[in-house]
Amino acid sequence: MEITEQKKGSVVLLVLTGRLDAGTAGKLEERLVSLINAGDRSFVLDFMHLDYISSAGLRVLLMAAKKLKGLNGRIVLASLKDHIREVFDIAGFSAIFPTYEQQDAAVGSFQ
């Protein structure tokens, strides 16, 4: 999995490419924790190029969302493919994470 990072105002945009499974989730966890520790509070994760997610990926998102909730921050998601959306639905995560069809709208949700 590749992670590219961009700053859009105060929003951190992370574009994930590839597979988010138990073998790669640690990489995202490290990145999110270090950004949160550095003071970032607003995150957009763009899944346009994400092909696959397992519960290990969801676990990292949940961990980060919990951390951010206590810090008045949040994570929103953009561009979920249908089969990834289905994983979120089955896990009951669609109620926890705001999701947007487009990256722009996700970034704009912080304004």
Binding site: R59, M63, A65, K69, I90, A91, I96
Partner: peptide, 14 residues
């Protein structure tokens, strides 16, 4: 709700 969701157990649920 978010704060109370346990971190594991989803794999078997799938």
């Amino acid at each position: 709700p978010l704060e109370e969701r346990p971190i594991g157990g989803l794999g078997v649920h799938f």
